[in-house]
Design a protein around this nucleic acid. Structure first.
Lengths: 202, 202
DNA sequence: CCTTTTCATGTACATATGTACACAAAACCT
DNA sequence: AGGTTTTGTGTACATATGTACATGAAAAGG
């Protein structure tokens, strides 16, 4: 049976107009896109549906299909936005890498930051990456993130070391994102020191 | 409208009994699981459906639901199997790491192997990893893969270097799996050499 | 004020999909 | 052989979901 009576109203919890009051709500599109990011972060890409996004954004179902013709559009825009936010955050944080002289320590902070407070962002980024494996439209966003990471690391050391550190960074994130207890700070820092050529334990 | 007339027969392309002839087909379960891996490798986890697997395995729809009560069961078994195959392949390949004295070169071969001939396996592994982010049932398989990788690398160097190399390895795979042209062999080898402390370019 | 255009929403519907289940066919037991 | 159990299939159905579209409400233009 098809969902006859007002199932959408139940979904969004509101029957009337949008809470922003006035018609013509600018930024609605972006709000929907951000809601999509939230859905992906919390439930994964396979749960990204028009209805789930609508509920998360607090807008009616029709609104999501109005602003984004197809689901793939919505996914592409949302994940590209997530990637850009991510890079922006990275660049901002980069300033502190200058201040603190100890590169290994700063990189460790960065890893722990991405695995802890910024975990949501990291999860979305990984979902994006894998989704891109089967959706050419998302490839660009993925490679952009890679490039930004490599550029950042390269600018603080040299070409080869930058690439190497980017790989270590990616690997540590990749391994750490599934582990239940956050990895030990000391362990990560030790790994970075070894990668940087210093064989001192601490 | 529900799919009235024999849509399953069209899907599998066969109306009668299984092509193996005799009833009681041992290994059927495993064949279905492998078909599931194929589906994930070629179309991604979100396209993993009972019907897609049935078509890929050449068995009727009922067979998939008979051997695997729920889709999550199928997913869990299939991906765990993929992970185990992966680790087995890794261990087998490990023998050659002894023969060839040059660690960086062997690691480079391994990366290129996983990105080239074994790309399917690598893709599935990454899908598994991300899927595990939102499915606790898959966590074990993911962490097992990590552990196997670290153990392998550790056994050829030392504790810290092993972890570091595992991270580099993961990172390079991660970055290389989306790039359209396979990364340059020389570039990868150079990165490994830098990570291993040798600053010689070649 | 009236018309037209743009923006937004609620609803309907076809389809894909997970899953239950009645039935059948072989294997097994005695 | 006759009955019982295991194994395997085809089919039906409820639900979730993408998407189209008729309708309405506000803005814009005159």
């Amino acid at each position: 049976m098809t969902t006859t009576e007002s199932e959408q109203s139940r979904t969004t919890g509101r029957t009337g107009r949008g809470q922003s009051g006035s018609r013509k709500d600018p930024g609605r599109r972006e709000r929907i896109a951000r809601a999509a990011i939230t859905v992906v972060a919390e439930r994964g890409i396979e749960k990204l549906t028009h209805r789930a996004v609508a509920a998360a954004a607090g807008v009616p179902l029709g609104s999501t299909t109005y602003h984004f013709a197809t689901l793939d559009d919505l996914l592409a825009v949302a994940l590209r936005q997530a990637a850009q936010d991510n890079v922006a955050e990275l660049r901002e944080y980069a300033g502190e890498m200058n201040a603190a002289g100890d590169l290994a320590s700063v990189l460790t902070d960065l890893v722990l930051r991405y695995l802890g407070p910024e975990r949501r962002r990291t999860v979305v980024e990984h979902e994006l990456y894998v989704a891109a494996l089967h959706r050419p439209a998302l490839r660009a966003a993925s490679t952009e993130w890679d490039a930004a990471l490599r550029d950042l690391f390269t600018s603080y050391t040299d070409e080869v070391s930058g690439k190497m550190l980017a790989a270590v960074f990616c690997g540590l994130l990749w391994q750490g994102i599934v582990r239940e207890p956050l990895p030990d700070r000391n362990e990560i820092e030790t790994i970075f020191r070894r990668a940087l050529g210093s064989h001192a334990v601490h």
